[in-house]
Simulated assay, not measured.
Amino acid sequence: MELRIFTEPQQGASYEQLLAVARATEDLDFGAFFRSDHYLAMGGDGLPGPTDAWITLAGLARETSRIRLGTLMTAATFRLPGVLAIQVAQVDAMSGGRVELGLGAGWFEAEHTAYGIPFPKEKFPRLEEQLEIVTGLWATPVGETFSYSGTHYTLTDSPALPKPAQPKPPVLIGGLGATRTPRLAARFADEFNLPFASLETSAEQFGRVREAAEKAGRSPDDLIYSNALVACVGRDEAEIARRAEAIGREPAELRANGLAGTPDEVVEKIGRYAELGASRVYLQILDLSDLDHLELISSRVRTQLS
């Protein structure tokens, strides 16, 4: 089981804070630093204000050397697909081939209206076209061109440059949709991620994705299955309560809906997700100033997982 660190900078984080967390992620032997792609806080003042996901990752690409870097999830509404393919390829080159693209349809209407970003009704068909275009641009051999004619996007004789450092950066698709999401994952995803889902929901959705992969003529084992869950780990009840209070949550609720408790409790619950087929967990870290939290998870949780 690989543990990755997942941050929500729209809730309030400077680039310097994100850099500190990314460096701790690398120093403490976690597998990756991921961040959300949002422009508006979901509660609270969000000070000092939002940071752009791909600009952040470009900076971190030059200031880290080992960890993977990516998004959960970039919104298809935020960027034109050709521009997104260029951005991700460039950051991949800047990192030496360590980038992964999580791409979703977009859902938070308020952040769109706050920053003048169109919020179309037909978001899922746009996501499907974006996936076709981004992966198609990367797959086009150098010296050839890429064209695409869809309902929402048209590309004509694109040189399909630049190329990423990796042959193809891994693509992550996630969500709880019962039909379209598994179908899209079966077509395009290297990894299927479930955000904040229970064991029961994870079992059902992983099963749907595996079934969709089989129907698409793909081995279900070709995909990586992962969960994103809020983390709140403490050596004792007092430390657990202190960390829960810092993020405005209750220990009992976090134990029920996330990865909360003592290190041994958290290891046991991660093991239950592993039994369902998950091989990665993205630990949502909401208090970015508490680097001791990361150290505890690394030394007492990560080291117990094979």
Rank of each mutant, 00 (worst) to 15 (best):
A93F: 03
V99L: 12
A89R: 00
L101W: 10
A85K: 10
G96D: 14
Q87E: 12
H112L: 11
P81D: 12
E100S: 13
E109V: 15
L80P: 02
Q90D: 11
A85H: 04
G96A: 11
S95Y: 07
M94S: 10
H112S: 06
Q90M: 07
G102M: 07
A110S: 15
G102A: 08
H112W: 09
D92K: 01
S95V: 04
Q87N: 09
A93L: 11
A85M: 07
A75Q: 04
S95A: 11
G97F: 08
D92F: 00
G96M: 07
D92Q: 02
G104S: 07
F78E: 00
W107E: 01
F78Y: 03
G96C: 10
A93D: 13
A75R: 06
Q87W: 00
S95P: 00
Q87T: 07
Q87Y: 01
M94F: 05
A105Q: 07
A110N: 14
A76D: 03
E111A: 13
R98H: 08
A105P: 13
I86S: 13
P81E: 12
T77N: 09
E111D: 09
H112M: 11
A105F: 15
Q90W: 00
L84T: 01
T113S: 14
F78C: 00
F78N: 01
I86A: 13
E100N: 14
M94C: 09
A76G: 04
W107F: 15
L80H: 13
E100F: 14
E111P: 13
V83S: 11
I86R: 14
A105W: 15
G96V: 09
S95R: 11
D92A: 03
H112I: 12
E100D: 15
A93P: 06
R79H: 01
R79F: 01
G106Y: 15
A89F: 00
L84F: 00
L80G: 08
V99D: 12
A89D: 04
V83D: 12
R98M: 05
L84A: 03
A105V: 06
L80R: 10
A105N: 08
V88D: 08
L80E: 12
H112V: 08
I86G: 10
